[in-house]
Design a protein around this nucleic acid. Sequence first.
DNA 1: GCCGTTTTCGGCCCGACTGTTTTCAGTCG
Length: 574
Amino acid sequence: MCRGVPLDNNRIIASALLETARAYEFLDENPYKVQAYRKAAHAVLQLDEPLSGVLEKGGLSGIPGIGKTIAARIESWVRGHDFSDLEELRARIPSGLDELLKVPGLGMKRIRILHEQRSIGSVEDLMDAVKEGKVSGLRAFPAKFVSSLPRALERVMSYRGKFTIDLALAYAEEIRSVLAASGIQVHLAGQCRRISEIVEKIEFLVEGGEGEMDKIMGLLKEPRVEIKGGAYEMPPKAVRPALSFIFVSPDALAARLLIATGSAGHLDELKNIAAETGVEIDERGVYRKGEMIAARDEEEIYRLLGLQYLPPEVREGRDVEMALARSHTVPELIRREDVRGTIHNHTVFSDGTSTLEEMVLGARERGYQWIGISDHSRSAYYAGGMSQDDIAEQHREIDELKARYRDIEILKGIESDILADGSLDYPPEILERFDFVVASIHTGMDIDRETMTKRIVTALRNPFTTMLAHPTGRILLSREPYEVDMDAVLEEAFRNNVALELNANPSRLDIDWRLIEPFISAGGIIVLSPDAHTVEGLDDMEFGLKLARKGFLTAGACLNSFGAEGVRLFAKKI
DNA sequence: GCCGTTTTCGGCCCGACTGTTTTCAGTCG
Protein backbone atom coordinates (compact mmCIF):
# COMPACT_ATOMS: atom_id res chain seq x y z
CA MET A 1 0.00 0.00 0.00
CA CYS A 2 2.83 2.40 0.68
CA ARG A 3 4.68 1.39 -2.45
CA GLY A 4 4.47 3.51 -5.56
CA VAL A 5 3.78 7.20 -5.39
CA PRO A 6 4.25 8.50 -1.86
CA LEU A 7 0.83 9.69 -0.85
CA ASP A 8 0.49 12.03 2.09
CA ASN A 9 1.72 9.90 4.97
CA ASN A 10 -1.18 10.42 7.34
CA ARG A 11 -3.71 9.54 4.70
CA ILE A 12 -1.98 6.21 4.08
CA ILE A 13 -1.80 5.40 7.76
CA ALA A 14 -5.45 6.35 8.32
CA SER A 15 -6.47 4.16 5.44
CA ALA A 16 -4.40 1.28 6.85
CA LEU A 17 -6.14 1.73 10.21
CA LEU A 18 -9.54 1.68 8.52
CA GLU A 19 -8.58 -1.43 6.61
CA THR A 20 -7.52 -3.04 9.87
CA ALA A 21 -10.88 -2.11 11.39
CA ARG A 22 -12.77 -3.65 8.48
CA ALA A 23 -10.70 -6.82 8.65
CA TYR A 24 -11.32 -7.22 12.38
CA GLU A 25 -14.99 -6.58 11.84
CA PHE A 26 -15.16 -9.26 9.16
CA LEU A 27 -13.30 -11.62 11.49
CA ASP A 28 -15.93 -10.93 14.16
CA GLU A 29 -13.57 -9.42 16.69
CA ASN A 30 -14.78 -7.30 19.60
CA PRO A 31 -16.81 -4.49 18.03
CA TYR A 32 -15.23 -1.93 20.33
CA LYS A 33 -11.81 -2.94 19.13
CA VAL A 34 -13.05 -2.31 15.60
CA GLN A 35 -14.39 1.05 16.71
CA ALA A 36 -11.06 1.88 18.37
CA TYR A 37 -9.23 1.46 15.04
CA ARG A 38 -11.80 3.65 13.31
CA LYS A 39 -11.42 6.34 15.94
CA ALA A 40 -7.65 6.16 15.65
CA ALA A 41 -7.90 6.62 11.87
CA HIS A 42 -10.06 9.65 12.45
CA ALA A 43 -7.57 11.03 14.96
CA VAL A 44 -4.73 10.60 12.47
CA LEU A 45 -6.63 12.45 9.76
CA GLN A 46 -7.15 15.36 12.11
CA LEU A 47 -3.45 15.89 12.77
CA ASP A 48 -2.07 18.97 11.16
CA GLU A 49 1.43 17.60 10.70
CA PRO A 50 2.80 14.36 9.24
CA LEU A 51 2.99 11.41 11.64
CA SER A 52 6.71 11.11 11.04
CA GLY A 53 7.03 14.56 12.60
CA VAL A 54 4.83 13.65 15.56
CA LEU A 55 6.99 10.56 16.16
CA GLU A 56 10.15 12.64 16.03
CA LYS A 57 8.78 14.91 18.71
CA GLY A 58 8.22 12.15 21.18
CA GLY A 59 5.46 9.94 20.01
CA LEU A 60 1.78 9.47 19.72
CA SER A 61 0.87 9.06 23.37
CA GLY A 62 -0.72 12.50 23.60
CA ILE A 63 -3.21 11.88 20.80
CA PRO A 64 -6.67 10.98 22.10
CA GLY A 65 -7.92 7.76 20.54
CA ILE A 66 -4.46 6.30 20.06
CA GLY A 67 -3.33 4.01 22.87
CA LYS A 68 -0.27 1.84 23.31
CA THR A 69 -1.22 -0.95 20.91
CA ILE A 70 -2.24 1.21 17.99
CA ALA A 71 0.64 3.62 18.59
CA ALA A 72 3.10 0.74 18.29
CA ARG A 73 1.47 -0.41 15.07
CA ILE A 74 1.57 3.06 13.55
CA GLU A 75 5.19 3.44 14.54
CA SER A 76 6.19 0.23 12.79
CA TRP A 77 4.27 1.32 9.69
CA VAL A 78 5.72 4.81 9.58
CA ARG A 79 9.26 4.17 10.77
CA GLY A 80 9.84 0.60 9.65
CA HIS A 81 7.64 0.63 6.53
CA ASP A 82 6.54 -2.71 7.91
CA PHE A 83 2.97 -3.55 6.97
CA SER A 84 3.34 -7.31 7.49
CA ASP A 85 0.65 -7.34 10.20
CA LEU A 86 -1.81 -5.78 7.77
CA GLU A 87 -0.79 -8.17 5.03
CA GLU A 88 -1.44 -11.12 7.33
CA LEU A 89 -4.89 -9.74 8.09
CA ARG A 90 -5.56 -9.19 4.40
CA ALA A 91 -4.86 -12.84 3.69
CA ARG A 92 -7.66 -13.79 6.07
CA ILE A 93 -10.41 -11.72 4.43
CA PRO A 94 -12.03 -11.85 0.96
CA SER A 95 -10.22 -9.77 -1.64
CA GLY A 96 -13.38 -7.95 -2.67
CA LEU A 97 -14.51 -6.98 0.83
CA ASP A 98 -14.18 -3.23 0.31
CA GLU A 99 -16.24 -3.26 -2.85
CA LEU A 100 -18.88 -5.53 -1.39
CA LEU A 101 -19.32 -3.09 1.49
CA LYS A 102 -20.22 -0.40 -1.01
CA VAL A 103 -23.30 -2.34 -2.10
CA PRO A 104 -26.34 -0.77 -0.40
CA GLY A 105 -27.89 -3.22 2.02
CA LEU A 106 -24.79 -5.38 2.25
CA GLY A 107 -23.24 -5.13 5.67
CA MET A 108 -20.59 -7.18 7.31
CA LYS A 109 -22.98 -9.86 8.53
CA ARG A 110 -24.46 -10.58 5.14
CA ILE A 111 -21.03 -10.55 3.56
CA ARG A 112 -19.89 -13.09 6.13
CA ILE A 113 -22.85 -15.34 5.31
CA LEU A 114 -22.05 -15.10 1.60
CA HIS A 115 -18.43 -15.96 2.26
CA GLU A 116 -19.06 -18.82 4.63
CA GLN A 117 -21.94 -20.47 2.82
CA ARG A 118 -21.26 -19.71 -0.83
CA SER A 119 -17.53 -18.87 -0.93
CA ILE A 120 -18.36 -15.44 -2.32
CA GLY A 121 -15.49 -12.98 -1.90
CA SER A 122 -15.99 -10.35 -4.57
CA VAL A 123 -18.57 -8.38 -6.50
CA GLU A 124 -18.03 -10.68 -9.51
CA ASP A 125 -18.56 -13.80 -7.39
CA LEU A 126 -21.78 -12.36 -6.06
CA MET A 127 -23.04 -11.38 -9.51
CA ASP A 128 -22.44 -14.92 -10.78
CA ALA A 129 -24.10 -16.43 -7.74
CA VAL A 130 -27.17 -14.20 -8.08
CA LYS A 131 -27.51 -15.10 -11.75
CA GLU A 132 -27.23 -18.78 -10.94
CA GLY A 133 -29.85 -18.47 -8.22
CA LYS A 134 -27.41 -19.46 -5.50
CA VAL A 135 -28.21 -16.52 -3.21
CA SER A 136 -31.98 -16.91 -3.06
CA GLY A 137 -33.06 -18.73 0.04
CA LEU A 138 -29.99 -17.81 2.09
CA ARG A 139 -30.77 -16.60 5.59
CA ALA A 140 -30.96 -12.78 5.71
CA PHE A 141 -31.38 -12.52 1.93
CA PRO A 142 -35.05 -11.75 1.23
CA ALA A 143 -36.21 -12.01 -2.37
CA LYS A 144 -36.70 -8.28 -2.86
CA PHE A 145 -33.15 -7.57 -1.75
CA VAL A 146 -31.69 -10.27 -3.99
CA SER A 147 -33.57 -8.92 -6.99
CA SER A 148 -32.09 -5.46 -6.36
CA LEU A 149 -28.54 -6.80 -6.32
CA PRO A 150 -27.60 -7.00 -10.02
CA ARG A 151 -28.22 -3.28 -10.54
CA ALA A 152 -26.44 -2.35 -7.34
CA LEU A 153 -23.47 -4.55 -8.21
CA GLU A 154 -23.19 -3.01 -11.64
CA ARG A 155 -23.17 0.42 -10.11
CA VAL A 156 -20.38 -0.51 -7.70
CA MET A 157 -18.35 -1.90 -10.59
CA SER A 158 -18.89 1.34 -12.48
CA TYR A 159 -17.11 3.21 -9.65
CA ARG A 160 -13.84 1.45 -10.36
CA GLY A 161 -10.97 3.71 -11.23
CA LYS A 162 -12.99 6.78 -10.22
CA PHE A 163 -12.08 9.16 -7.39
CA THR A 164 -13.54 12.29 -5.86
CA ILE A 165 -11.83 15.56 -6.73
CA ASP A 166 -10.24 16.05 -3.29
CA LEU A 167 -8.32 12.78 -3.48
CA ALA A 168 -7.39 13.32 -7.12
CA LEU A 169 -6.07 16.83 -6.41
CA ALA A 170 -4.14 15.65 -3.33
CA TYR A 171 -2.55 12.91 -5.39
CA ALA A 172 -1.79 15.25 -8.27
CA GLU A 173 -0.08 17.66 -5.88
CA GLU A 174 2.03 14.86 -4.38
CA ILE A 175 3.21 13.88 -7.84
CA ARG A 176 3.85 17.46 -8.87
CA SER A 177 6.01 18.10 -5.83
CA VAL A 178 7.96 14.84 -6.16
CA LEU A 179 8.74 15.65 -9.80
CA ALA A 180 9.45 19.33 -9.14
CA ALA A 181 11.98 18.35 -6.48
CA SER A 182 13.92 16.69 -9.31
CA GLY A 183 13.58 19.63 -11.64
CA ILE A 184 10.74 18.27 -13.76
CA GLN A 185 8.07 20.90 -14.35
CA VAL A 186 4.56 19.62 -14.93
CA HIS A 187 1.25 21.37 -15.55
CA LEU A 188 -2.01 19.90 -14.41
CA ALA A 189 -4.66 19.54 -17.12
CA GLY A 190 -7.72 17.43 -17.83
CA GLN A 191 -10.45 16.67 -15.31
CA CYS A 192 -8.42 17.87 -12.33
CA ARG A 193 -7.81 21.30 -13.81
CA ARG A 194 -11.41 21.44 -14.92
CA ILE A 195 -12.50 20.51 -11.36
CA SER A 196 -14.66 17.53 -12.30
CA GLU A 197 -16.34 16.21 -9.18
CA ILE A 198 -15.31 12.70 -10.26
CA VAL A 199 -11.86 12.10 -11.73
CA GLU A 200 -10.84 9.08 -13.77
CA LYS A 201 -7.50 10.31 -14.96
CA ILE A 202 -4.91 12.76 -13.66
CA GLU A 203 -3.35 14.42 -16.69
CA PHE A 204 -0.05 16.27 -16.78
CA LEU A 205 1.77 18.20 -19.43
CA VAL A 206 5.51 17.83 -18.99
CA GLU A 207 7.94 20.42 -20.26
CA GLY A 208 10.73 18.56 -22.00
CA GLY A 209 11.47 15.55 -24.14
CA GLU A 210 10.13 12.03 -23.87
CA GLY A 211 13.47 10.91 -22.48
CA GLU A 212 12.18 12.24 -19.15
CA MET A 213 9.66 9.40 -18.94
CA ASP A 214 12.20 6.91 -17.55
CA LYS A 215 13.12 9.44 -14.90
CA ILE A 216 9.48 9.98 -13.99
CA MET A 217 8.81 6.26 -13.71
CA GLY A 218 11.86 5.96 -11.49
CA LEU A 219 10.73 8.78 -9.23
CA LEU A 220 7.17 7.48 -8.98
CA LYS A 221 8.33 3.85 -8.73
CA GLU A 222 5.72 2.96 -11.32
CA PRO A 223 6.96 0.55 -13.95
CA ARG A 224 3.87 0.02 -16.09
CA VAL A 225 3.32 2.53 -18.85
CA GLU A 226 1.18 2.29 -21.94
CA ILE A 227 1.22 4.77 -24.78
CA LYS A 228 -2.27 5.93 -25.73
CA GLY A 229 -3.01 8.77 -28.10
CA GLY A 230 0.47 10.21 -27.70
CA ALA A 231 0.32 10.15 -23.90
CA TYR A 232 2.18 7.91 -21.50
CA GLU A 233 -0.43 6.35 -19.25
CA MET A 234 -0.24 4.50 -15.97
CA PRO A 235 -3.31 2.41 -15.23
CA PRO A 236 -5.50 3.19 -12.19
CA LYS A 237 -4.76 1.62 -8.82
CA ALA A 238 -6.81 1.14 -5.68
CA VAL A 239 -5.50 4.39 -4.20
CA ARG A 240 -5.46 6.63 -7.27
CA PRO A 241 -6.88 7.20 -10.75
CA ALA A 242 -4.98 6.56 -13.98
CA LEU A 243 -2.10 8.95 -14.70
CA SER A 244 -1.22 10.49 -18.02
CA PHE A 245 1.89 12.39 -19.11
CA ILE A 246 2.16 14.37 -22.34
CA PHE A 247 5.51 15.87 -23.31
CA VAL A 248 5.40 19.31 -24.80
CA SER A 249 7.72 21.98 -26.15
CA PRO A 250 7.48 25.51 -24.73
CA ASP A 251 6.12 26.86 -28.08
CA ALA A 252 3.11 24.63 -27.96
CA LEU A 253 2.44 24.80 -24.23
CA ALA A 254 -0.52 27.20 -24.38
CA ALA A 255 -2.29 25.32 -27.17
CA ARG A 256 -1.58 21.98 -25.55
CA LEU A 257 -2.85 23.14 -22.20
CA LEU A 258 -6.02 24.40 -23.83
CA ILE A 259 -6.56 21.12 -25.67
CA ALA A 260 -5.72 18.95 -22.67
CA THR A 261 -8.05 20.89 -20.36
CA GLY A 262 -11.35 21.51 -22.14
CA SER A 263 -14.02 18.85 -22.45
CA ALA A 264 -14.58 17.37 -25.91
CA GLY A 265 -17.67 19.55 -26.27
CA HIS A 266 -15.77 22.70 -25.40
CA LEU A 267 -12.97 21.91 -27.84
CA ASP A 268 -15.47 21.22 -30.63
CA GLU A 269 -17.02 24.61 -30.05
CA LEU A 270 -13.61 26.29 -30.05
CA LYS A 271 -12.70 24.57 -33.31
CA ASN A 272 -15.94 25.72 -34.93
CA ILE A 273 -15.25 29.28 -33.89
CA ALA A 274 -11.62 28.97 -35.00
CA ALA A 275 -12.77 27.83 -38.45
CA GLU A 276 -15.02 30.92 -38.67
CA THR A 277 -12.08 33.18 -37.89
CA GLY A 278 -9.49 31.40 -40.03
CA VAL A 279 -7.48 30.20 -37.04
CA GLU A 280 -6.25 26.65 -36.53
CA ILE A 281 -5.45 25.13 -33.18
CA ASP A 282 -3.79 21.78 -32.84
CA GLU A 283 -1.25 19.99 -30.67
CA ARG A 284 1.65 21.80 -32.32
CA GLY A 285 0.32 25.27 -31.68
CA VAL A 286 -1.92 27.99 -33.07
CA TYR A 287 -1.87 28.91 -36.78
CA ARG A 288 -3.39 31.44 -39.13
CA LYS A 289 -3.09 30.73 -42.87
CA GLY A 290 -0.40 28.18 -42.13
CA GLU A 291 1.69 30.65 -40.14
CA MET A 292 2.37 29.82 -36.52
CA ILE A 293 1.22 32.40 -34.00
CA ALA A 294 3.22 32.39 -30.82
CA ALA A 295 0.40 32.35 -28.29
CA ARG A 296 1.89 33.10 -24.90
CA ASP A 297 -0.99 31.78 -22.91
CA GLU A 298 -4.57 30.57 -23.10
CA GLU A 299 -5.92 34.11 -22.63
CA GLU A 300 -4.30 35.06 -25.91
CA ILE A 301 -5.88 32.13 -27.74
CA TYR A 302 -9.37 33.06 -26.54
CA ARG A 303 -8.67 36.63 -27.60
CA LEU A 304 -7.59 35.48 -31.06
CA LEU A 305 -10.92 33.70 -31.39
CA GLY A 306 -12.81 36.83 -30.41
CA LEU A 307 -13.91 35.26 -27.15
CA GLN A 308 -13.75 36.40 -23.57
CA TYR A 309 -11.41 34.22 -21.52
CA LEU A 310 -13.07 31.25 -19.82
CA PRO A 311 -11.37 29.87 -16.72
CA PRO A 312 -10.54 26.15 -16.85
CA GLU A 313 -13.31 25.01 -14.51
CA VAL A 314 -16.14 26.17 -16.79
CA ARG A 315 -14.84 24.61 -20.01
CA GLU A 316 -17.48 21.92 -20.20
CA GLY A 317 -19.03 22.57 -23.60
CA ARG A 318 -22.34 23.82 -22.29
CA ASP A 319 -24.32 26.34 -24.31
CA VAL A 320 -24.16 28.91 -21.52
CA GLU A 321 -20.35 29.19 -21.39
CA MET A 322 -19.96 29.80 -25.10
CA ALA A 323 -22.82 32.30 -25.18
CA LEU A 324 -21.19 34.26 -22.35
CA ALA A 325 -17.74 34.10 -23.94
CA ARG A 326 -19.04 35.21 -27.35
CA SER A 327 -20.96 38.15 -25.90
CA HIS A 328 -18.12 39.04 -23.51
CA THR A 329 -20.43 38.83 -20.53
CA VAL A 330 -18.69 36.15 -18.45
CA PRO A 331 -19.41 37.29 -14.89
CA GLU A 332 -16.79 37.69 -12.17
CA LEU A 333 -16.92 34.27 -10.49
CA ILE A 334 -16.94 34.01 -6.72
CA ARG A 335 -13.54 34.05 -4.99
CA ARG A 336 -12.32 33.03 -1.56
CA GLU A 337 -12.15 36.65 -0.45
CA ASP A 338 -15.85 37.10 -1.20
CA VAL A 339 -16.73 34.55 1.48
CA ARG A 340 -17.45 36.45 4.68
CA GLY A 341 -18.94 33.66 6.69
CA THR A 342 -19.76 30.00 6.93
CA ILE A 343 -23.12 28.48 7.74
CA HIS A 344 -24.21 24.93 8.59
CA ASN A 345 -21.56 23.76 11.05
CA HIS A 346 -21.79 21.17 13.83
CA THR A 347 -20.33 20.97 17.33
CA VAL A 348 -20.21 18.50 20.21
CA PHE A 349 -23.83 19.47 20.90
CA SER A 350 -24.70 16.87 18.25
CA ASP A 351 -22.33 14.75 16.17
CA GLY A 352 -19.48 17.24 15.77
CA THR A 353 -16.22 16.61 17.60
CA SER A 354 -15.11 20.21 18.15
CA THR A 355 -16.61 22.46 20.80
CA LEU A 356 -18.60 25.56 20.08
CA GLU A 357 -15.69 27.76 21.09
CA GLU A 358 -13.22 25.80 18.95
CA MET A 359 -15.48 26.19 15.93
CA VAL A 360 -15.88 29.91 16.52
CA LEU A 361 -12.12 30.39 16.89
CA GLY A 362 -11.54 28.20 13.83
CA ALA A 363 -13.83 30.40 11.77
CA ARG A 364 -12.12 33.53 13.08
CA GLU A 365 -8.68 32.15 12.20
CA ARG A 366 -9.93 31.58 8.67
CA GLY A 367 -10.84 35.22 8.41
CA TYR A 368 -14.60 34.85 8.61
CA GLN A 369 -16.75 37.64 10.01
CA TRP A 370 -19.49 35.26 11.09
CA ILE A 371 -20.19 31.60 11.69
CA GLY A 372 -23.54 29.83 11.77
CA ILE A 373 -23.93 26.92 14.17
CA SER A 374 -26.53 24.34 13.19
CA ASP A 375 -26.46 21.12 15.14
CA HIS A 376 -28.85 18.27 14.43
CA SER A 377 -32.44 18.37 15.60
CA ARG A 378 -34.10 15.99 18.02
CA SER A 379 -35.28 13.38 15.50
CA ALA A 380 -31.70 12.79 14.38
CA TYR A 381 -31.06 10.31 17.21
CA TYR A 382 -28.22 8.74 15.27
CA ALA A 383 -26.37 12.05 15.42
CA GLY A 384 -27.18 12.95 19.02
CA GLY A 385 -29.80 15.50 17.97
CA MET A 386 -30.52 18.30 20.41
CA SER A 387 -33.32 18.22 22.95
CA GLN A 388 -35.02 21.45 23.93
CA ASP A 389 -32.77 21.63 26.99
CA ASP A 390 -29.71 21.24 24.78
CA ILE A 391 -30.90 24.11 22.62
CA ALA A 392 -31.32 26.36 25.63
CA GLU A 393 -27.87 25.43 26.90
CA GLN A 394 -26.27 25.98 23.50
CA HIS A 395 -27.89 29.38 23.22
CA ARG A 396 -26.59 30.35 26.66
CA GLU A 397 -23.11 29.27 25.61
CA ILE A 398 -23.34 31.18 22.34
CA ASP A 399 -24.38 34.33 24.21
CA GLU A 400 -21.33 33.96 26.47
CA LEU A 401 -19.03 33.53 23.48
CA LYS A 402 -20.60 36.53 21.75
CA ALA A 403 -19.71 38.63 24.77
CA ARG A 404 -16.17 37.30 24.78
CA TYR A 405 -15.38 37.48 21.05
CA ARG A 406 -16.54 40.78 19.65
CA ASP A 407 -14.77 40.42 16.32
CA ILE A 408 -16.86 37.54 15.03
CA GLU A 409 -20.63 37.16 14.89
CA ILE A 410 -22.20 33.87 15.88
CA LEU A 411 -25.53 32.95 14.33
CA LYS A 412 -27.81 30.53 16.13
CA GLY A 413 -29.13 27.86 13.82
CA ILE A 414 -30.43 24.33 13.69
CA GLU A 415 -30.25 21.55 11.11
CA SER A 416 -33.81 20.39 11.29
CA ASP A 417 -34.80 17.06 9.79
CA ILE A 418 -37.49 17.14 7.15
CA LEU A 419 -39.93 14.51 8.36
CA ALA A 420 -41.85 12.13 6.10
CA ASP A 421 -44.73 14.58 5.64
CA GLY A 422 -42.44 17.51 4.86
CA SER A 423 -42.78 19.19 8.24
CA LEU A 424 -39.72 20.23 10.24
CA ASP A 425 -39.30 18.44 13.51
CA TYR A 426 -39.79 21.41 15.83
CA PRO A 427 -42.91 23.55 16.20
CA PRO A 428 -42.83 27.25 15.25
CA GLU A 429 -42.34 28.41 18.85
CA ILE A 430 -38.99 26.62 18.91
CA LEU A 431 -37.94 27.37 15.33
CA GLU A 432 -38.43 31.08 15.93
CA ARG A 433 -35.63 31.05 18.50
CA PHE A 434 -33.03 30.58 15.77
CA ASP A 435 -31.37 33.09 13.46
CA PHE A 436 -31.61 30.56 10.65
CA VAL A 437 -32.95 27.07 9.96
CA VAL A 438 -31.26 24.46 7.78
CA ALA A 439 -33.77 21.93 6.47
CA SER A 440 -32.49 18.57 5.32
CA ILE A 441 -33.39 14.96 4.73
CA HIS A 442 -31.48 12.20 6.50
CA THR A 443 -33.95 9.34 6.57
CA GLY A 444 -36.62 7.82 4.37
CA MET A 445 -34.78 8.57 1.13
CA ASP A 446 -36.07 5.54 -0.71
CA ILE A 447 -39.45 6.90 -1.74
CA ASP A 448 -40.97 7.69 -5.11
CA ARG A 449 -40.27 10.90 -6.99
CA GLU A 450 -43.66 12.46 -6.50
CA THR A 451 -43.76 11.85 -2.74
CA MET A 452 -40.21 13.12 -2.29
CA THR A 453 -40.87 16.25 -4.35
CA LYS A 454 -43.99 17.01 -2.34
CA ARG A 455 -42.10 16.42 0.91
CA ILE A 456 -39.29 18.82 0.01
CA VAL A 457 -41.64 21.43 -1.43
CA THR A 458 -43.59 21.38 1.83
CA ALA A 459 -40.37 22.01 3.75
CA LEU A 460 -39.44 24.85 1.40
CA ARG A 461 -42.79 26.48 2.05
CA ASN A 462 -42.24 26.40 5.80
CA PRO A 463 -41.71 30.08 6.68
CA PHE A 464 -38.83 29.17 9.00
CA THR A 465 -36.76 27.36 6.37
CA THR A 466 -33.69 29.43 5.47
CA MET A 467 -31.87 26.91 3.34
CA LEU A 468 -32.17 23.39 1.98
CA ALA A 469 -29.05 21.37 2.74
CA HIS A 470 -27.60 18.70 0.43
CA PRO A 471 -30.67 18.92 -1.83
CA THR A 472 -30.32 15.54 -3.56
CA GLY A 473 -28.73 13.45 -0.81
CA ARG A 474 -26.09 12.05 -3.12
CA ILE A 475 -22.80 10.65 -1.84
CA LEU A 476 -20.41 10.58 -4.75
CA LEU A 477 -19.33 7.07 -5.77
CA SER A 478 -21.54 5.64 -3.08
CA ARG A 479 -25.14 6.75 -3.00
CA GLU A 480 -27.21 7.93 -5.93
CA PRO A 481 -29.28 11.11 -5.52
CA TYR A 482 -32.82 10.47 -4.40
CA GLU A 483 -35.63 10.63 -6.89
CA VAL A 484 -36.89 14.19 -6.92
CA ASP A 485 -38.11 16.77 -9.43
CA MET A 486 -35.30 19.31 -9.13
CA ASP A 487 -37.04 21.81 -11.42
CA ALA A 488 -39.88 21.98 -8.91
CA VAL A 489 -37.39 22.29 -6.02
CA LEU A 490 -35.54 25.16 -7.72
CA GLU A 491 -38.76 26.94 -8.52
CA GLU A 492 -40.14 26.57 -5.01
CA ALA A 493 -36.87 27.59 -3.35
CA PHE A 494 -36.79 30.76 -5.39
CA ARG A 495 -40.44 31.57 -4.65
CA ASN A 496 -39.99 31.13 -0.90
CA ASN A 497 -36.61 32.88 -0.56
CA VAL A 498 -34.90 29.68 0.48
CA ALA A 499 -31.21 29.33 -0.34
CA LEU A 500 -30.04 26.07 -1.86
CA GLU A 501 -26.89 24.60 -0.38
CA LEU A 502 -23.85 23.60 -2.30
CA ASN A 503 -22.55 21.22 0.33
CA ALA A 504 -18.79 21.61 0.18
CA ASN A 505 -17.96 18.19 1.55
CA PRO A 506 -16.03 16.69 -1.39
CA SER A 507 -18.03 13.47 -1.14
CA ARG A 508 -21.27 15.37 -1.58
CA LEU A 509 -20.81 18.56 -3.65
CA ASP A 510 -24.57 18.67 -3.62
CA ILE A 511 -26.42 20.61 -5.23
CA ASP A 512 -24.98 19.56 -8.54
CA TRP A 513 -22.97 22.45 -10.04
CA ARG A 514 -24.89 22.13 -13.32
CA LEU A 515 -28.01 23.51 -11.64
CA ILE A 516 -26.40 26.61 -10.14
CA GLU A 517 -26.38 28.89 -13.19
CA PRO A 518 -30.03 28.36 -14.13
CA PHE A 519 -31.06 28.82 -10.47
CA ILE A 520 -29.19 32.07 -9.89
CA SER A 521 -30.20 33.39 -13.31
CA ALA A 522 -33.77 33.09 -12.11
CA GLY A 523 -32.85 35.04 -8.98
CA GLY A 524 -32.09 32.17 -6.60
CA ILE A 525 -29.50 32.28 -3.80
CA ILE A 526 -26.84 29.61 -3.26
CA VAL A 527 -25.08 29.00 0.06
CA LEU A 528 -21.75 27.20 0.36
CA SER A 529 -21.50 25.04 3.47
CA PRO A 530 -18.65 22.95 4.69
CA ASP A 531 -21.12 21.00 6.88
CA ALA A 532 -18.11 20.92 9.22
CA HIS A 533 -18.09 18.44 12.09
CA THR A 534 -14.61 19.52 13.21
CA VAL A 535 -12.57 22.69 12.98
CA GLU A 536 -10.57 21.16 10.12
CA GLY A 537 -13.84 20.43 8.33
CA LEU A 538 -14.22 24.18 7.81
CA ASP A 539 -11.53 23.89 5.16
CA ASP A 540 -13.85 21.93 2.89
CA MET A 541 -15.13 25.36 1.88
CA GLU A 542 -12.32 25.21 -0.70
CA PHE A 543 -14.14 22.48 -2.65
CA GLY A 544 -17.44 24.30 -2.43
CA LEU A 545 -15.82 27.35 -3.97
CA LYS A 546 -14.22 25.37 -6.76
CA LEU A 547 -17.49 23.73 -7.77
CA ALA A 548 -19.43 26.97 -7.28
CA ARG A 549 -17.16 28.67 -9.80
CA LYS A 550 -17.72 25.78 -12.16
CA GLY A 551 -21.43 26.52 -11.89
CA PHE A 552 -20.88 30.25 -12.65
CA LEU A 553 -21.73 31.37 -9.12
CA THR A 554 -21.16 35.06 -8.45
CA ALA A 555 -20.62 36.69 -5.06
CA GLY A 556 -23.92 38.53 -5.35
CA ALA A 557 -25.90 35.29 -5.57
CA CYS A 558 -24.08 33.64 -2.68
CA LEU A 559 -25.30 33.95 0.90
CA ASN A 560 -21.73 33.59 2.20
CA SER A 561 -20.88 36.99 0.79
CA PHE A 562 -23.58 38.64 2.92
CA GLY A 563 -22.73 40.21 6.26
CA ALA A 564 -24.13 38.57 9.40
CA GLU A 565 -27.01 41.02 9.53
CA GLY A 566 -27.77 40.36 5.88
CA VAL A 567 -28.00 36.64 6.62
CA ARG A 568 -30.39 37.34 9.51
CA LEU A 569 -32.60 39.46 7.28
CA PHE A 570 -32.51 36.84 4.54
CA ALA A 571 -33.60 34.23 7.07
CA LYS A 572 -36.44 36.47 8.24
CA LYS A 573 -37.43 36.80 4.56
CA ILE A 574 -37.13 40.56 4.75
C1' DG B 1 -8.51 -1.33 21.87
C1' DC B 2 -9.16 3.08 24.46
C1' DC B 3 -10.38 5.60 28.36
C1' DG B 4 -11.10 7.14 33.05
C1' DT B 5 -10.77 6.49 37.54
C1' DT B 6 -15.18 6.41 43.04
C1' DT B 7 -7.84 3.83 39.10
C1' DT B 8 -6.71 -1.93 36.33
C1' DC B 9 -12.37 -3.07 35.02
C1' DG B 10 -16.54 -1.86 32.80
C1' DG B 11 -18.44 0.97 29.38
C1' DC B 12 -18.12 2.25 24.75
C1' DC B 13 -24.97 5.66 20.74
C1' DC B 14 -28.95 3.70 19.48
C1' DG B 15 -33.68 4.24 17.33
C1' DA B 16 -35.86 3.93 12.67
C1' DC B 17 -36.61 1.30 8.94
C1' DT B 18 -37.12 -2.86 6.08
C1' DG B 19 -38.38 -7.23 5.06
C1' DT B 20 -41.66 -11.61 5.74
C1' DT B 21 -39.13 -11.43 11.15
C1' DT B 22 -44.79 -14.09 13.83
C1' DT B 23 -40.53 -11.57 17.81
C1' DC B 24 -36.18 -10.47 14.91
C1' DA B 25 -31.79 -9.62 12.06
C1' DG B 26 -29.45 -6.54 9.44
C1' DT B 27 -28.49 -1.97 7.85
C1' DC B 28 -28.37 2.90 8.10
C1' DG B 29 -27.26 7.36 9.70
